[in-house]
Computed example of a mutant assay.
Amino acid sequence: MQQSTALSPAQVDAVHAVAQAAAAADGVAPLSEETLLALDRTPGGDGTTATYLTVVTDGTLVGYGHVAPDGSSEIVVHPDSRRHGHGRALLEGALGVRSDVRVWAHGNLAPARALAASLALEPVRELWRMSLDVESHPAPEPVVPRGFRARSFEPGRDEQAWLDVNSRAFAHHPEQGRMTLADLRDRMDQPWFDPAGLILVEDQKSGALAASHWTKIADEGGEVYVVAVDPAYQGRGLGGVVTALGLRHLASRGVARIDLYVEGDNAPALATYRRLGFEQSALDVMYSRTVHERLPR
């Protein structure tokens, strides 16, 4: 196993190929969007860079481990190269980078659970994927409250305002609240990005951004990507309004199913999404040594 802070273009392609093969075999993507976007980033001058772990056999990359600057981690082994100890080697390598590493098991599949248990890792966080059948559960008619207006995101104008609201809305979230302008631009450069699908609700009097719903369409499916309400505007029903606006937008694009991700211990959000017709469809679990307590929402 090799450890580095940079990957060659050929290695990046190989990691994508391994991840795609694993997703096809397991029915769940092993690497998150952020991990895939970070593959070809160069080390930062401030030292905040990921650590890349690779397993190569006969000149072919067959396993990959990613340890992010915040200590979160993901690993994947090509289906044809499993049962040879590569997954354990990658997990031990991640623990060698940081003893407090937190490793995602996307889908929480049985082999991942067994591997985590064998190294005394325990669940510290659950992330639910919830899904909605668009035909069976049409979105409610959104009514924007008086004093507010809805419009689409305008690139070159709205980036900083969106980042500011996102940061305040997710101040205690372990990933979402840390999004930077570079992170935002990475996503805006993706083929799926559509400014019309990033819906903003703003205060008509001040022009301030109050809430937003970033939707995503990829692989013919829709996603509630990010819903954010500025804490200064909470309690005015804007979360429900902007959520409905996004659901209506996705339905208008012809998607049959809409997915979202929500923390498993966020009871109010779970209740809200259930009322809209969403049901749990998958589970991601984060494992760590007992040095960690459950992360805040």
Rank of each mutant, 00 (worst) to 15 (best):
A23P: 00
G44V: 10
D13H: 08
T49C: 06
T35E: 12
A14E: 12
D13M: 13
A17E: 13
D13P: 08
L31K: 08
L39D: 10
P30D: 03
P9H: 07
P30T: 09
E33P: 02
S32L: 01
G47M: 12
H16G: 06
H16W: 15
L37Q: 04
P43S: 14
P9D: 11
V18N: 00
E34N: 10
G27S: 03
T5W: 11
G44H: 10
A50P: 00
L7M: 09
A25D: 15
A6R: 05
H16C: 03
A14G: 07
A38L: 04
G45N: 14
P30N: 08
E33D: 12
P9S: 12
A50K: 04
A29M: 12
A22D: 08
G47T: 11
R41S: 07
G47W: 10
A38R: 13
A23Y: 06
T48Q: 15
V15Q: 10
L37M: 15
P30L: 14
D26S: 04
G44D: 11
D40I: 08
G45I: 09
V28A: 01
A50C: 13
D13S: 13
D46R: 08
D40W: 06
V28R: 10
L37R: 12
A22H: 09
A21Q: 12
L36Q: 14
Q20H: 02
L31G: 02
D13V: 07
L31M: 14
A22F: 05
T5C: 13
S32T: 15
Q11N: 02
V15N: 04
L39E: 00
A19W: 10
D13Y: 03
E34G: 05
V15T: 03
P9R: 06
T5V: 11
A38E: 07
A21V: 13
A25E: 12
L39Y: 09
P9G: 15
A21H: 00
A14W: 10
G45T: 04
P43I: 15
D13A: 15
E34R: 09
